[in-house]
Amino acid sequence: MNAGERAVPTGMLAAGAATFRRDVVLAFRRPGQMLQPVVFFLIVTTLFPLSLSPQLSQLRDISPGILWVGALLSSLLALESLFRADLEDGTLEQWVISGQPLAVQVLARILAHWTVSGLPLVAAAPLVGASLAVPASAFGTTMLVLGLGTLCLSGLGAAGAALTLGSRRASVLLSLLVLPLAMPILIFGARGVDLAILGEPTRGPVLLLSALTILTLSLTPWAAASAVRISLE
């Protein structure tokens, strides 16, 4: 984190913004790696029609489930590396001794992670939706709930990734920890898509999912921060 020649703003928000910018820049330097979850998402959602039936009317009924399971698994993929490299090169220690609240740094990391892994999934959602016979009128809601859901998952995943730092078989363990906690997201999210496909009001699930996202983002940074501290002890 090079300070550069300019006067650098200080404070916890500035530090968080710096972390966010750094993470996003680093991710955009390796677009191939960034696109992996999206490709995975496309492949997984292709598996379902192949294994079930190509009839569009049937696919439409189960498309919310396919979309959500695909999105859930794809965002899990990118989670394991969330803190690992920074643990190895000492960035996490810098975070701790920087004097800035660790939870803010973690929150910046969560938002950056969502920007580079969640948003591409949201962008790919209409493509996948169209292939599963989701009507175009439902794309807006689908993208909204997927965006909220992946943000929520990034929060939960950050806690999981921080907890599994320095443990054996971290990637399987991470899924084991995060997936049960993610079930409410799946329920509300899939219901939102379902209602949107049926052309019914989607306010309920969307609001519930938003509430869940706000709750998750206000609590998990603290959990992840304390887990990071534990892993550095």
């Binding site: 443990s167 363990l173 959990a223 892993s231 002890e233």
Partner: peptide
């Protein structure tokens, strides 16, 4: 239980599983 058994260090296992 999986998280607890994945850490070799007892203190770390205690504290991370507590967060979970």
């Amino acid at each position: 239980m999986a998280l607890r058994s994945a850490h070799d260090d007892l203190q770390r296992a205690d504290r991370s599983s507590a967060v979970l």
